[in-house]
Amino acid sequence: MALTLDRVTLDLGGRRVLTDASAAFAAGRITVILGANGAGKTSLLRAAAGLIAPSAGKVAIDGRAIATMRRDERARSIGYLPQSGDVAWNMPARDVVALGRLPHHASAADDIAAVLAAMAATDSEQFAERRVGELSGGERARVLLARVLAGEPQWLLADEPLASLDPAHQFDLLERLRGQAARGVGVVVVLHDLVQAARVADEIVMLRNGRVFASGPPEEVLTQQHLRDAFGVDVLLFPDGEGRMLPVPAGRAGSA
């Protein structure tokens, strides 16, 4: 199964944010979207989730355009975790997770089972009754991920889920995304941290000025030249002992 963007061009507020962007995300794999600020990462993710309609091009699941899907059908298929972890009302964590069931129109028993499973998968059952405003950043991130998982999506799209998490919680969250991919879910995640991207990604899509600049497995995409071109930084590559090369920014390009 594949979620594909085929030559997607996107204009927002009169400005072109994506140009001719093509990418294919595979089920059971983690694809990381990388790029400098303003490169179009969030726009690509939102277009892939069907939240904004491209001006040209097509977003499709196994060849079927998501624009032709019913809203509920698309929502059951694609789970989207926005960057802002904002919850307007101070509801108990369990109620927030249950919002993930909205597109399902299922029986109460099915909903409860899915909510419990999602909270178990994110290890958040112990604060089910606590209000979201009273949770720590790490606990809140788990609850919001559980909200998406409760919808049992085939595709999980997450926009910078590591922002505002300390390293231990970052590892924890990436491990849970890895677990989802192992269950066959196609995971697409926007990241800023190059090291975490190199660690977790099966595939990388690198953007530059709204265009797909490089894509493929991390060892092919995360080269010093690519990173200098896309981010304007020089990187040092360190082996992690598991055969991966981790890129660590050493300074702005040319400053050394």
Partner: peptide, 20 residues
Amino acid sequence: GPGLDALALGEDAARSLGAN
């Protein structure tokens, strides 16, 4: 009701949950 519930998570999340 369902639309307002979805909107508690913000507009993008609400749309992603199928809210019109």
